[in-house]
Design a protein around this nucleic acid. Structure first.
Length: 512
RNA sequence: GGUCCGUUCGUCUAGGGGUUAGGACGCAUCCCUUUCACGGAUGAAACACGGGUUCGAUUCCCGUACGGACUACCA
């Protein structure tokens, strides 16, 4: 019998979700759905000092926007709640006591200063890595060194203490990681990590093991930064008697900065002008606003596709995947091992691809929304026509309006470079003739007619159409590049064209 | 420093003991075209290095170099 696959994404609410965290969430989601299992979200808020208001709402909104909402979470609830660690405080204590009783953990009363002094002493003695371990714990104030009655007295007196794990002196700890294979470390390189803090909260190490077990998590998919502490986690499963049901681990390669090396940071994002967060985030302390992918015009389906390919690939040559297709194709086995540099160009390319897949109807909504901000209203069918000719050249929805301004506003100035090179008396002659033909036209202008009339006008003036085409474009749009001119003409309509021709003839002159 | 992890075009990557080392982004050129863009075609561009193992290694093993993560009463 195969048990239900259950995975979790476990962010701590310390601010906006980092894009790397979003990818971790996505991989968890993809794996869960592929396996027909559950994707849960657990808030790891055991560090009260780092709690940031609004962060949890942000996480929820970001995942919803990406289309990867969890099945169980603080806000959806579920059979294994609560899903906020701060609300599970009493649970952890119970397991810490269990560890204490079994001799796998002990009380420690050392103050921060004493800890510091120990590290300094060790550093001075040229100990390579000063840590609280099987050697040093014999010289510290803990329930291993202090007489039992003193420990009891200190506890009863309410003296602050932590509970530390007692790492065995000599043991090989192995774990099989789904992406790295076998990883082996010696327990003597591990230190006696704090399990329960003096404020009564568990540390990540205890909390994540207890919760994963209680929440019946089958696979732990998380960032590579957790790999060094994974052996400790294996040990904890063993000490708690849960080794049989220990989840499978998969440590994801890190997201690296685009140039040079190192973990992707906010600094890099700013330097290269791309966001680091899925959505904009306002720091509640400084009030500083950091831009997000959503705000810069990235489509969620593009971001999902892009992120999925940062460290994973389907093994064939397909590049474009919907969320559903990703679910279908996803396997842990195809996750790469090495760190991945963040290339925003590729993200833009994905955005273009998905933008072009959208219907004119959907795209028109972006345009009308932008226009509304400027107090402009245009008919829906007009908006749809505009986006249909503009979408091939847009990366972001906002480009529809930015690049297509001339579709609504007549040019007030003309690109001087193009004017110098292309504007001449021939162009003025042709346009004058063209304007007259448009005046005489009874029915509404369509692209084919627009072209025919223009061709006739050129012929009458004894000018080759190709020679003046750029000048015509300049006269109507003000610039030298843009979508198919005749389509533009059709959208503009003859009255608007006549007006624009009149203005450009006046402004650019008829002699050239 | 220590522990762990990694290394195929500039980037994301496929591949795997014998291949013209494949694709995508970006770049260049050409075609399409009234321009730009789209699209199409073509091109430049990679197995970090040194030892093994082997008839043969980019692929397997070991080193070296380089890079990264971790090294908190943070997660």
């Amino acid at each position: 019998m195969s048990q239900e696959v259950r995975v979790r994404f476990a962010p701590s609410p310390t601010g906006a979700l980092h894009i790397g965290g979003v990818r971790t969430a996505l991989y968890n989601y993809l794996f869960a759905k592929k396996q027909g299992g559950k994707f849960l979200l657990r808030i790891e808020d055991t560090d009260q000092a780092r709690f940031v208001p609004g962060a949890e709402d942000y996480i929820k909104e970001a995942l919803d926007w990406m289309g990867i909402s969890p099945d169980e979470s603080p806000w959806h609830g579920g059979p294994h709640g609560p899903y906020r660690q701060s609300e599970r405080k009493s649970i952890y204590k119970e397991y810490a006591m269990d560890l204490l009783e079994k001799g796998h953990a002990y009380y420690a009363f050392d103050t921060a200063e004493e800890l510091d002094a120990m590290r300094q002493r060790l550093t001075a003695a040229r100990v390579v890595s000063p840590q609280y371990n099987s050697i040093t714990r014999t010289q510290m104030k803990n329930s291993l060194t202090l007489p039992a009655d003193e420990v009891k007295a200190r506890l009863e007196a309410g003296e602050p203490y932590v509970i530390r794990v007692k790492i065995p002196r000599k043991e090989e700890v192995r774990l099989q990681d789904k992406v790295r294979g076998w990883v082996m470390v010696h327990s003597n390189t591990l230190d006696d990590k704090v399990l329960m803090k003096s404020d009564g909260m568990p540390t990540y190490h205890l909390a994540n093991i207890v919760d994963d077990h209680l929440m019946k998590i089958t696979h732990v998919i998380r960032g590579e930064e957790w790999l060094p502490s994974a052996p400790l986690h294996v040990l904890l499963y063993r000490f708690l008697g849960w080794e049989e049901s220990m989840p499978t681990f998969a440590h994801l390669p890190l997201l690296l900065k685009p140039d040079g090396n190192g973990k992707l940071s906010k600094r890099d994002a700013e330097k290269h002008g791309f966001p680091l967060f899925p959505m904009s985030w306002t720091d509640p302390d400084s009030g500083q606003v950091a831009d997000g992918f959503r705000d810069q015009g990235y489509l969620p389906e593009a971001l999902v596709n892009f992120l999925a390919f940062l460290g994973w690939n389907p093994g064939d040559h397909r590049e474009l995947f919907t969320l559903e297709e990703l679910v279908e194709a996803f396997t842990l086995e195809r996750i790469g091992k090495s760190g991945t540099k963040f290339d925003i160009n590729k993200a833009k390319w994905y955005n273009e691809q998905y933008l072009r897949k959208k219907s004119d109807h959907e795209l028109a909504a972006y345009l009308t929304a932008d226009l509304k901000k400027e107090g402009i209203q245009i008919p829906q069918d007009n908006a749809e026509k505009i986006v249909s000719v503009m979408k091939e050249r847009a990366t972001f929805p906002a480009d529809l309006w930015k690049e297509g301004r001339f579709m609504i506003f007549a040019p007030e100035t003309f690109d001087t470079q193009v004017a110098e090179k292309k504007w001449n008396a021939d162009a003025a002659k042709v346009l004058t003739a063209y304007s007259e033909k448009l005046e005489a036209l009874q029915e509404p202008l369509d692209a084919a007619t627009a072209k025919e009339l223009l061709a006739v006008s050129a012929e009458e003036c004894g000018v080759k159409l190709g020679k003046v085409m750029q000048a015509v474009r300049l006269a109507i749009t003000g610039v030298g590049a843009g979508p198919d001119l005749m389509q533009v003409f059709e959208i503009l309509g003859k009255e608007e064209l006549i007006k624009r021709i009149g203005f450009s003839l006046k402004t650019l002159g008829i002699a050239g």
